[in-house]
Structure formats: structure tokens, C-alpha cells
Simulated scan of single mutants.
Amino acid sequence: MSNPVGLPELSVIVPTLNEEGTLPELLENLGQQRGIAFELIIVDGGSRDDTRSLAASAVTDFHLVQVDSPAGRGTQFNAGVRWARGEWLLFLHADSRFADPTALARGVGHLIAESERLAAPLIAGRFALRFADTGGHHPGVYAFYESKARQNRPGCIHGDQGFLLQRQLFSRLGPFATDLSFLEDERFAERVFQQGKWLLLPAEITTSARRFVAEGLFRRQWLNALILNALAVGWFDFLRAAPGLYRVQDQAGRIDLRAPARAVWGLLRDRPWRERWRLCYDSAAFALDNAWQLLLVLDVRLGLRRNRDFRGEKTPCLDRWEKPLRRVCRWLPGRFFLAVGLGTGGYLLLIFGSRFPRR
């Protein structure tokens, strides 16, 4: 394990938990990066496989540090920061890869240039997302999610894109939330939006679709929508109580929607009717505020007809119709009727979700 003289410019922090199948490829991929001095900090959350021994025996051209930490991606990221020596931090998942050997150098250079140009030091970056290991299924759906991840909007930026930022900014916005075992990336991304600015970096990051394949793409996305809705309306009781909302990767399997459905009904049953109504109304507002995604679906469908590699480069439907759609969605009677619909039928769909076709 090499230890280059001098401090690294960048610290790459990767949490692991039973990642023996992905770690060797990650080390090889990062070893191909050129143009920047970086270190890799692997923070293990108690792996029961050979992850730790693989990291300990790895021979790399970059400085590699292995740290032990309690499990939980947010907790592991925070532990990695305490060992980091670089001015720049990259929070990366173990199944992430870069096809461009200058991706890290270009990412840091782009953020430095944009910070100087905009005179705004509170800038964080993430890479353009691509999915791998999809099994060739639902290419249009994955193209939509890849296009959505390139939108500079709240709710569109996730940890599988890699979070790149200066240590100074992390000190101001961090640490990652650890009161839940998941959603640390969503909550950190929101803090960046509140106090700074996100930029899309000029390189792609590839992440494995293994979770979607194991759990079922549409079941996973249905559950993700429920999770993000609960986060948006502040329903943390559900996020803490519902079983199986987000399992660690090595425990991922076909999602059974009946368990979260029971949690929804159990928690609603214990609330006064006024609180139930407020929850439904806030959920309706969340749904309407995200209605712009319907226009992005149209743009992706039209774009894929022209170019199979289309990933949201041009969005004429979204550009033309988002403002009129937003005015309609802010119509208070519309929010009222949608809230009634959510209260009477939305959660029934969740209950019967387990009967959806297995895809």
C-alpha cells in the first residue's frame, strides 16, 4: 500500500458493508484516475465478508486508509471526514465507476473555475448519472431517471452521483444526518440548496442498478416516492417505524409493499383526523410541486426517438409548459381535491401494491 509524500488535493470517502464483490473493481477504477493527487478512505461498517481483508491487502498508486465505524452511510461518511487530509472531499458509493480517467481532476477544476466566475464559494458538484447492470430491462425508465438526475432541482440529486465539495463547505453544512439509517444524501443535498448552489460536473459516473433489479424497479420507485413524500412533509414517525424501507445492499430482495402499508395505516389510525387531513394536504402539495416530472417524461420519450443516448440535454416540453403547469398546480381547490383523493385512495394503492405484476 503506497503512501505518497505530501498532502492529497482530494479525499475520496467510500462507506462499505459486505462489498467484497465491488471493492476490487472500485480500486482498479480509481487507480486509473490521472491529473490529481487523491487518497481513498474506506469506512467499513462491520462487514462479515472479505471486504476488510481486501482493503487491507490492496496495493494502489494512491494512499489508502481503512477505518472502522458503526454501520450507517451517514455515520460512515462522517467518520471518513475525520481522517481526510484533502482540501476537497468526494463522497462516493462502492458501486460507482468513472469511464473518464480525468473525471476527478475535471470535477475539482470545474468547481474551482465556477466558484471564481460566480464569486460564490458555497458550491457543491455531482456527476452526470448512468446506470449499469440493468439487465437490458426498461431502458426508457432508466433514461428518465438519468435525465432527472441531471436536473438542478431539489429531489433530483442523490448520493449515487457522488458529492464533491470543499472541506470548508462541508464544515459549514455538515455533518451528514445520522438519526435515520438512510436519506442522509437527500437531506444534505437540501442543505446545499438552502445555503449554496449545486453544479453538474463535466463527467459521468456509472452506478449499478443492482438494487432495482433485486427489489423490482417499479416497486422500488413506488416506495421511493412514498419515502420522499414522508420526508417532504416531515413524517419522521413513518420513516423510523416502517420496516424494510431501505435495506442494506446485501439484504436487498423483492420488496413486499404490505409492511410499509401496515405502518402507514397504523400511524394514521393513531392520529387525530385534523392531523390526518393535514398530512394528506401536504402530500397533495408535494405531488403537485413535482408535476413537472410529467413534462420531463415527454421530453425523454421524444428525445429517445431521435437519439437512443438522449439524457435530457434538451427539454422543450419542460421549458415551454412548466410555468403554466405550475400556475395550475398552485390552484388551491385543486390541492384540496387531490388531498381528498390521497386520503381516500392513495394509500389503498399501497396496500394492494403487493399484487402488482412482478417486474
Rank of each mutant, 00 (worst) to 15 (best):
V5F: 00
I13H: 05
P24D: 07
Q32C: 11
R34I: 05
A37L: 12
I42R: 13
I42Q: 13
V43H: 13
G46V: 08
R52F: 09
S53D: 15
L54R: 15
L64H: 09
V65N: 01
T75Y: 04
W83D: 03
R85L: 02
G86R: 01
G86I: 01
R97P: 04
R97W: 05
F98S: 06
A105Y: 03
G107K: 00
G109Y: 04
L111Q: 11
E116H: 15
P121C: 13
I123T: 13
R130P: 11
F131K: 11
D133W: 08
Y142P: 01
F144G: 03
N152R: 15
G155H: 06
H158P: 03
D160I: 15
L169Q: 07
E190M: 02
W198D: 12
P202V: 12
A203L: 09
E215P: 07
L217R: 13
R220I: 03
W222N: 08
L226W: 05
V233F: 04
F238Q: 10
R247D: 15
P260F: 04
P260G: 08
R262C: 05
G266L: 01
L268D: 05
P272H: 01
F286E: 09
F286D: 11
L288P: 08
L296D: 11
V297A: 12
V297F: 11
L298V: 15
R305C: 07
N307I: 00
R311K: 10
G312D: 06
G312R: 05
T315V: 11
P324M: 05
C329D: 01
F337D: 04
V340E: 00
G341N: 08
L342Y: 04
L342T: 03
I351T: 06
I351Y: 07
R355F: 07
F356L: 15
R358D: 05
